[in-house]
């Protein structure tokens, strides 16, 4: 059994009277990909922000790479985070952006530079590395943000809709890169609405609905649960698990 990279116990976040995340428990083994699914407003981003130390849980606890969630300084060297909106300055070039973030992480040296250049090259972005972000398309921004979140080989990477805005070729390259991350021991926490991506990549899938973790299993197991005949898909499972009215899910399926 691989050591645990992410573990939460009764993780909960309230905003006033609204419960955004409701006593969530899960554990993600090291070097695996955890697909985190849920409809809009289910609490996925809030959960990711708590796991990255950017939001304090109302109650409950958790660890990432063995570091408590309330220790942001301790978490910092071990994590990378790609939020839904690419966190980039508009007025700088990709090279300057990476230089800034690498500097904040006190990373330097030829090895880091080569890794960044390799990632840019594989994402077909090397020729535009000295172009300002403001001149980038959505997909190009997404690529830079992915490199920014992963260049320092973090133990755990949190990716929120990483393939958003990417063309099919770039999306495939990114999926390959995500798989390679786990080959090197990195744990990937992947939140996306693109179910085939989760189906292809994730070792385990957690489905969050109205703040609660309503299912957790492998994509195949979830699909099987949706239709015992074996003809079900992850999409069927998702619709069934997140439907207010189970009959509605059936009609979708």
């Amino acid at each position: 059994m691989a050591p645990t990279a992410i573990r939460t116990r009764n993780l909960r976040k309230e905003y006033g009277t609204t419960v955004a995340v409701d006593d969530v428990d899960f554990a993600v083994p090291e070097g695996t990909i955890y697909g985190f699914l849920g409809p809009n407003g289910a609490g996925k981003t809030t959960t990711m922000q708590m796991l990255t130390g950017l939001t304090t849980p109302t109650s409950g606890s958790g660890t990432v790479a063995g570091v408590s969630l309330d220790d942001r300084d301790g978490l910092r060297p071990h994590i990378g985070y790609l939020p839904e909106e690419p966190p980039l300055f508009e007025e700088v070039t990709a090279r300057e952006q990476l230089s800034y973030i690498a500097g904040l992480r006190d990373c330097s040296g030829t090895a880091v530079e080569e890794r960044i250049e390799t990632l840019f090259d594989r994402l077909d972005l090397l020729d535009d590395i000295d172009t300002r972000i403001s001149d980038y398309s959505k997909g190009m921004r997404q690529k830079v943000a992915f490199v920014q979140a992963t260049f320092h080989n973090p133990a755990v990477v949190f990716l929120d809709e990483p393939t958003s805005g990417l063309d099919p070729r770039a999306a495939r390259t990114l999926r390959t890169l995500i798989t390679e991350l786990t080959d090197n021991g990195t744990t990937v926490f992947l939140s996306t609405h693109i179910l085939p991506v989760v189906e292809e990549l994730a070792d385990t899938v957690g489905v969050l609905y109205e703040g609660s973790l309503v299912a957790e299993a492998s994509p195949q197991e979830l699909a099987r649960q949706a239709d015992e005949s074996g003809a079900g898909s992850l999409e069927d499972a998702f619709l069934e698990l997140t439907a207010d009215d189970p009959m509605a899910a059936e009609t979708h399926g």
């Binding site: 070039t93 800034y100 330097s108 030829t110 530079e113 001149d135």
Partner: peptide
Amino acid sequence: SPAGTETPSHVGDEADGHWLDDALTAG
């Protein structure tokens, strides 16, 4: 593009290396 020649050509030069440390300064 205002970037144009914003990043001097020596940045990323193999001989100099370490563009990571120079990129912002060059900007």
